[in-house]
Write a protein that binds this DNA or RNA. Structure first.
Length: 443
RNA sequence: GGAGAGGUGGCCGAGUGGUCGAAGGCAAUCGCUUGCUAAGCGGUCGUACGCGUUAAACCGUACCAAGGGUUCGAAUCCCUUCCUCUCCGCCA
């Protein structure tokens, strides 16, 4: 969420910034500025009226004779004042609702260090790590490999849950678990992240905090409820959704809190399942486990002071990269242009891993700096020093990494001519010492 | 699912219509004092918005779970909702 004050005071700058990401609806911004100003005027008015009422009421308290004519007269005039206050409050509320709505649907401003560009084609490749695996044969894709190995079972995934679900078997399931374990160990033990375990079902308020709601409800799975549940839940004023990423519960950890400055930065890592409806991506990546409705991910989240934020993004990205490096995977780092960064982000690096079968790099991690965009929604603040006024935190997050896609990349990059797949040394301790996946060998 | 209790500042905890943003204690912090692990004394010590300022301060308003109501005036009275805890039942 943008600061309404900042928007009114720097309208031209905000328009220009949002235009960089393709948001050219100036009328909405003008409306927002108007509403924000009106809101301030309304506050000033109601405050003044209330002040008058408070003053007069105090005076009445001091009148000894509560049955005197003067007392009755005062009471009458204050009753009228009370009505005026109510009317003023009512008027203020109307504009406020519209203002909040606009603020919640407005995307973040790109950082000055985010390059211009309209779409993913304008993203900037920053660096490439490693080299393409030399394969003396035509690479098979992970679906062929996985099915031949007996570790990926798409048919049964579909039987159980429909399209975009998979069952992992034997060493496939083991690999998923090994990757999760490996990533968490590296981040917790070496990168200084506090490991957290969080719910995979969250309230709509949490999703509003990180920005998925109200705009992107169609991408989420909201849990269906029977009649009783529905009744209770409506009454309780919140809906439950499956999380699309651990970013949601982990970032919301510090909603409505004020952290002490000397405890920053706060770094958390979490593994969770993630659930995405993938609405609007019909026909895209239908083959294989690149795009599933449910997948596991290890997520990194950092709460930092604004001054450190941009450097913190480099740090967080390097932590995610470190996983790819230890696994010996060929990848590149891409900086997203203003037209391609996510709704709440102001600067994003994507890590893309090489997939031989597709002869291309595919996203495996996205590391973003949100500025105070999420923090303002969340009311996540920090106190720079004792006694100082609280300020909004900056939040960052990134995948470290998407486990399903890591598994895909491993299969494809480490495939051998005979259909077996080498297990990179870093992962072997987590695979019971195994060095290789062999077709027909489930244990 | 059944029965009961309760939600006040970082924590504990007073407060049943005006003098309450809220006693007292703890924690924290600053200073003073005392030569001996420690204690004593004093000050400070919520947040947001508005106004204002270079920035503050000051000032105003709001907030005692949330929303609504009664009243000239609500932490206090009424209604609705949410949440927490305890016991029983069920359950990984």
């Amino acid at each position: 969420m943008l600061d309404p004050r900042f928007v009114t005071d720097n309208l031209a700058e905000v328009k220009a910034g949002l235009a960089r990401r393709g948001f050219t609806d100036e009328a909405t911004l003008d409306r927002l500025a108007t509403l924000a100003q009106a809101r301030r005027a309304a506050i000033a008015e109601t405050d003044a009226l209330r002040e008058e009422r408070n003053r007069e009421s105090d005076a009445m308290a001091k009148v000894a004779d509560k049955r005197s004519p003067e007392f009755a007269a005062k009471r009458e005039s204050l009753r009228a004042l009370g009505d005026r206050i109510k009317a003023a409050e009512e008027a203020a509320r109307a504009g406020e609702a519209e203002l909040d709505e606009l603020l919640l649907t407005l995307p973040n401003l790109p950082a000055s260090s985010t390059p211009d560009g309209r779409s993913e084609h304008d993203n900037v490749e920053l660096r490439v790590h490693g080299t393409r695996p030399e394969l003396a044969f035509t690479p098979r894709d992970h679906v062929d490999l996985g099915e031949a190995l007996g570790i990926l079972d798409f048919e049964r995934g579909t039987k159980l849950s429909g399209a975009r679900f998979v069952v992992l078997r034997g060493m496939g399931a083991r690999l998923e678990r090994a990757l999760m374990q490996f990533m968490m160990d590296v981040h917790a033990d070496e990168h200084g992240y506090e490991e957290v375990w969080v719910p995979a079902l969250v309230k709509d308020s949490a999703l509003r905090g990180t920005g998925q709601l109200p705009k992107f409800e169609k991408d989420l799975f909201r849990i269906a409820k029977d009649a009783d549940w529905e009744k209770e839940s409506e009454a309780s004023g919140h809906e439950l959704y499956l999380i699309p990423t651990a970013e949601v519960p982990v970032t919301n950890l510090h909603a409505d809190e004020i952290l002490e400055g000397d405890t920053l930065p706060r770094a958390y890592c979490a593994y969770t399942p993630c659930f995405r409806s993938e609405a609007g991506s019909h026909g895209r990546d239908t083959r294989g486990m690149i795009r599933q409705h449910q997948f596991d991910k290890v997520e990194l989240v950092r709460f930092v002071a604004p001054e450190q934020a941009e450097a913190e993004l480099e740090k967080l990205t390097s932590h995610a990269e470190s996983i790819l490096q230890r696994l010996g995977l060929h990848y590149r780092v891409v900086q997203l242009c203003a037209g391609d960064i996510g709704f709440g982000s102001q600067k994003t690096y994507d890590l893309e891993v090489w997939l031989p079968s597709q002869d291309t790099f595919r996203e495996i991690s996205s590391c973003s700096w949100f500025g105070d965009f999420q923090a303002r929604r969340l009311k996540a603040r920090y106190r720079p020093a004792p006694k100082e006024k609280p300020r909004l935190l900056h939040t960052l997050n990134g995948s470290g990494l998407a486990i399903g896609r890591t598994l895909v990349a491993l299969l494809e990059q480490y495939q051998q001519a005979d259909g077996s797949v080498l297990i990179p040394p870093a992962l072997r301790p987590y695979m019971g010492g195994r060095e290789r996946l062999v077709p027909g060998k489930l244990t």
